[in-house]
Amino acid sequence: MRHAIAILALAVSAPLVAASVQQLPGAPDASRVTAGTYTADSGHSLVGWRVDHFGFNSYFGIFGDVAGTLTLDPANPAAAKVDVTIPVSKVTTASAGLTDHLLRAGKDGGQPDFFGPNPADARFVSTSVTPNGNRARIAGNLTLNGQTRPVTLDAEFTGAGANPMNKKETVGFEATATIKRSEFGVNYAIPMVSDEVKLDITVAFEKN
């Protein structure tokens, strides 16, 4: 009798449990992507950076409010184009003193150690896309601190679907890259603070 009651209770509760499990609106399913032009969701797009500090450990910070566009056709992913800007002036670290150092003017009218108080936005413009399943290598030109150099991103398609807040079709990507800051004229404290900078990028794009 107890066994029968347990089975009945399970049968009644199972639909309720299933109903309580919500499905995520986004999934890495290319069939959800439609062709068109997408605009970066600045509130949910970040560029993280990481440098080695004195050979002891890594230190990292972020640039937020990434803006820009992605033109994408799932039938021809190699033709995709991306053009994004990164507001260097909005750099954030866990140390108020370091953040101030990144953005302060040079001493006695000299060049700033890093970016200075009014840095121009950085900009990445793709020149080619080489897809490989849900991943791609995106070659392009990065302009930073007045210098333009080629940079390649190792990117991954991470999700697509309708944003439940605004109903817009959304696609998400993550990417990594490594640059040398000396190539962009940011030379302060090399090699005590590494020349090599690792970038960790996450961007959501919403269809126009």
Score class of each variant (00 low, 15 high):
Arg104Thr: 14
Ser95Pro: 04
Asn132Ser: 15
Asn187Arg: 13
Gly159Thr: 06
Asn132Gly: 13
Lys107Arg: 13
Ala105Ile: 10
His101Phe: 12
Asn134Trp: 09
Asn163Trp: 04
Asn132Leu: 11
Ala162Asp: 11
Gly110Glu: 10
Phe173Trp: 12
Ala162Arg: 11
Glu183Cys: 10
Met165Ala: 13
Ala162Ser: 13
Lys168Thr: 12
Ala160His: 00
Ser126Ile: 01
Ala96Leu: 14
Leu98Arg: 13
His101Trp: 12
Leu144Gln: 00
Thr143Pro: 00
Pro164Gly: 09
Ser182Pro: 07
Phe157Val: 03
Tyr188Cys: 11
Ala155Asn: 02
Gly109His: 09
Gly172Thr: 07
Ala96Tyr: 10
Ala175Lys: 00
Thr178Met: 12
Ala139Trp: 05
Asn163Val: 02
Glu183Ala: 14
Pro164Thr: 10
Arg149Lys: 15
Ala136Trp: 02
Ala122Pro: 01
Thr158Ser: 08
Pro150Thr: 09
Ala139Thr: 07
Asn134Lys: 11
Phe124Trp: 03
Thr170Trp: 00
Ala94Val: 12
Ala160Asp: 01
Asn134Leu: 12
Pro117Asp: 09
Ala160Thr: 00
Asn145Glu: 07
Asp195Tyr: 05
Asn141Ile: 12
Ile138Ser: 02
Ala162Gly: 05
Asn132Glu: 13
Lys168Pro: 04
Thr143Gly: 03
Thr148Asn: 04
Arg181Thr: 01
Val151Asn: 04
Ala175Pro: 00
Val125Asp: 08
Asp100Met: 09
Pro150Met: 08
Thr176Ala: 13
Asn141Lys: 15
Gly106Glu: 08
Phe173Lys: 01
Ser126Ala: 04
Val171Thr: 03
Asn187Trp: 11
Pro150Lys: 07
Lys107Gly: 13
Ile138Lys: 01
Ala96Val: 13
Gln147Ile: 05
Thr178Ser: 15
Asn163Ile: 05
Pro164Leu: 08
Pro164Asn: 10
Asn132Cys: 08
Phe114Lys: 01
Asn134Asp: 15
Val171Tyr: 01
Tyr188Arg: 14
Ala122Ile: 04
Lys167Pro: 05
Asn134Pro: 06
Leu102Trp: 02
Ser194Arg: 03
Ala189Trp: 09
Ala162Gln: 11
Ser128Ile: 04
Val129Cys: 04
Asp121His: 12
Thr176Arg: 13
Ala189Phe: 11
Phe124Arg: 00
Phe114Trp: 15
Thr152Ala: 05
Ile179Thr: 02
Ser126Arg: 00
Ala122Asp: 04
Ala177Arg: 03
Asn132Ile: 04
Lys168Leu: 15
Ala120Asn: 14
Thr158Asp: 05
Leu98Asp: 11
Ala96Lys: 14
Arg137His: 12
Thr93Tyr: 10
Ser128Ala: 15
Asp100Thr: 15
Phe124Leu: 05
Gly110Trp: 09
Ala177Leu: 08
Asp100Gly: 14
Lys107Asn: 14
Thr158Gln: 07
Asp195Thr: 04
Gly110Leu: 08
Ala175Phe: 02
Asn187Phe: 10
Gly110Lys: 09
Tyr188Ile: 10
Thr170Gly: 00
Lys167Leu: 15
